[in-house]
Simulated assay, not measured.
Amino acid sequence: MNPAELARLLDEANHDPWESVSAALARVDGQPHPRIGWLTTHLSATKREAWTRIAAATGAPAPPEDAGLTRLMRWEVGAAGLLPEAALDTTVEHSGRLMSVAALLRLNARHTAWHAGQIAALAGQTRWA
């Protein structure tokens, strides 16, 4: 996959109107299930960690420190599309594993889709205070 294709993959996991984090969050009505807050915080942290490693290895910009999940998801799509093709083969370490930047971005997209499904499953479970 090239940078544009990886950016599209991330964009779909983050923003697709049917199956994405944004679509799942749009289904939340009323007081959200507490696990949704944990999932969104976790996604922000893991995306930020992945992009911090990518930035350190490739010289790409680091993610904005003040960005919440919504802004971070928009930022990473643009950042992925701007990576030089050669950067995709750069080796990074993530969770004790060595992988290419391209592999880490694909993992990021799978991880995002995994948690989008969890958020969608919890979205209809309104909690009453």
Rank of each mutant, 00 (worst) to 15 (best):
M1Q: 01
A4R: 05
A4I: 13
L6G: 04
L6H: 09
A7S: 09
R8K: 09
R8G: 07
L9K: 10
L10W: 01
L10R: 04
D11A: 09
D11R: 07
E12H: 00
N14R: 04
P17C: 03
P17L: 12
V21C: 12
V21W: 10
V21E: 00
S22H: 00
A23W: 14
A24E: 06
A24Y: 04
A24G: 12
A24F: 03
A26M: 05
R27D: 07
R27H: 01
V28D: 04
V28S: 06
D29L: 08
D29K: 15
G30P: 07
G30F: 06
Q31N: 11
H33R: 13
I36M: 06
G37M: 00
G37I: 01
W38F: 13
W38Q: 10
L39M: 10
T41D: 05
H42N: 02
H42A: 04
L43H: 02
L43V: 08
S44Q: 05
A45V: 09
K47M: 07
R48V: 02
E49Y: 01
E49R: 14
A50S: 04
A50Q: 05
W51E: 03
T52L: 14
T52R: 15
A55Y: 13
A55P: 14
A56I: 11
A57P: 10
A57N: 15
T58C: 11
G59Q: 11
P61Q: 14
P61E: 08
P63E: 01
P64T: 15
P64E: 06
P64H: 09
E65W: 01
D66R: 08
A67E: 09
G68M: 09
L69G: 01
T70N: 03
R71K: 10
R71H: 02
L72G: 09
R74N: 05
E76M: 10
A79E: 11
A79T: 08
A79F: 05
A79Q: 00
L82S: 11
L82Y: 04
P84A: 15
P84Y: 03
E85V: 12
A86E: 15
A86L: 07
A87G: 07
A87S: 12
D89L: 13
T90G: 00
T91K: 06
T91W: 00
T91S: 11
V92P: 14
E93Y: 07
E93F: 08
E93K: 12
H94Y: 15
S95C: 13
R97T: 12
R97L: 03
V101M: 04
V101A: 01
A103D: 08
N108R: 00
N108C: 01
A109L: 05
A109R: 03
R110N: 04
T112L: 08
A113D: 11
A113L: 05
W114F: 08
H115I: 07
H115W: 07
G117F: 12
Q118M: 10
A120F: 09
A120L: 03
G124Y: 09
G124H: 03
Q125K: 05
R127K: 15
A129N: 05
A129W: 10
